[in-house]
Design a protein around this nucleic acid. Structure first.
Lengths: 250, 250
DNA sequence: CGTTAATTTGAGACCATTCAATTTCGGTGG
DNA sequence: CCACCGAAATTGAATGGTCTCAAATTAACG
């Protein structure tokens, strides 16, 4: 029997308030097609209209904009079971790009079907709303990160966030994580140059906070890295098990 | 007869898809109390639980976080008829502060009542959803702004955004806008120091792009300022009259 | 095993910061 | 209305974190 690939999302959302068995079943009934994308492939293109919503099933993706002088700023990193473009549900024109960081598998859901379900089912709707708010919260923290922290803190913070989120969805054990970002991409995510990123990473390695090689990140000293990165996971709104949100009864 | 202060919001939202007469009437029926807040007063405090949603009726507010070393990063500026904490509708603990930039008047709406209405009325719900997405879009642009642009471009961009948004809600005529940010606050919004912000502003003045004095900003050369700020309003998802969003029909 | 991408190293330049002092502005009380 | 005060804006000079440019080394991949 074939597995419904939306199952992973249904399981993750099952902890959200109001997301009951029925919501899960409805979600699984969504029309969708699973597709592979190669590394560097675009999932969303700035300026384009979008008619589909893309759920990341396998692999990493990143969100970015390119500015006039050719510089690129990465705005967020996305990991499996995350929608990379929930905002396309309503906004007409994409205001940024989303690109695969690794080879990916995604489930593509027609926008209209997803919106219709959200309209009909409060559990699904609430889950989508929460996801949007969490995305926004991460954007806010990134503004702070690139705006006010020095290079060492900035990079340590980004590593903390990624490690924490990967841990949270069960990817990564014993402090070891897939880390497919090149140093150039890490630089674009932190607003630094590749050269300085390289030197800063070396400092973090010398301090025995991390190991980072061959697309794999090992957090050697979690407390030390938290400290170095000025990391407080409040903004992720998770207590380690569940999302910490208002109950619907309110 | 007393005016319902939610009217301004109803009028602004009336252009959103699905926000019909009924939605407007429902919105006006929301329980709420109007209150003045003095300059610098906190509307939201990081770490606090929130049970109310705050709509800005008069005055400006700003969103910010304080980092370990005492530095502050301003994450967004808010102007009248904007909810400053729509995210508190669902997230339990505030992950940042919101503070009045000027003396303000706000309408405070109980969280539960707002959520209940959103649940019941698709027009209101869609409007809230759109507002959340627009907020997120602005956060993304700010990541880019502080992450990858030099000081001149950064400041020019922020001025463009504010002028554009003020123009859009009918505040500001002939390129003249209330601009209550001190140079220190402007520095915290752009990730620069006050001293460098001062020098950069002087450069923009010398280039005859703006006049900025006595809490008032005059845009002398709109095209020049756009150019200097690498400003493209796509991310604001407005065509000048309406929000550019997907129609609900799909 | 060759070829390209990614990482690393070095040195010099520059943008923005820091620190400190001065001037201007806005508000308040005499 | 003017004197006074604190906050905000401005200026100067020196420092420093990060960038730029360029080259060398290592890793990834067909």
């Amino acid at each position: 029997m074939e597995v419904n690939r939306l199952d992973a999302l249904a399981r993750r959302w099952s902890k959200y308030p109001g997301f009951d068995y029925d919501a899960g079943q409805e979600l699984l009934r969504l029309p969708h097609s699973c597709r592979p994308f190669s590394k560097d492939a675009y999932l969303v293109r700035e300026g384009h209209k979008t008619v589909e919503c893309t759920l990341l099933l396998k692999g990493y993706a990143f969100r970015h904009k390119v500015i006039r002088n050719g510089g690129r700023q990465i705005i967020s990193i996305h990991i499996p079971t995350e929608f990379v473009d929930l905002q396309n549900g309503l906004l007409e024109i994409a205001d940024h790009n989303v690109q695969c960081l690794t080879p990916c598998e995604v489930a593509v859901v027609p926008r209209a079907a997803l919106m219709e379900l959200a309209d009909r089912n409060v559990g699904v709707r609430t889950a989508m709303w929460i996801e949007t708010l969490l995305d926004a919260s991460i954007f806010r923290e990134w503004v702070v990160n690139v705006g006010r922290r020095d290079s060492r803190t900035r990079i340590a913070h980004l590593l903390c966030e990624l490690a924490w989120r990967l841990e949270n969805i069960g990817l990564g054990e014993a402090g070891i994580f897939d880390f497919p970002l090149t140093q150039e991409q890490l630089a674009d995510a932190t607003g630094l140059t590749p050269v300085h990123t390289n030197r800063t990473l070396q400092a973090l390695r010398r301090a025995r906070l991390i190991r980072l090689d061959a697309r794999s990140l090992t957090v050697l000293d979690w407390d030390g890295l938290r400290e170095a990165g000025d990391f407080d996971e409040l903004y992720l709104h998770h207590n380690g098990r569940d999302v910490t949100v208002q109950s619907l009864a309110g």
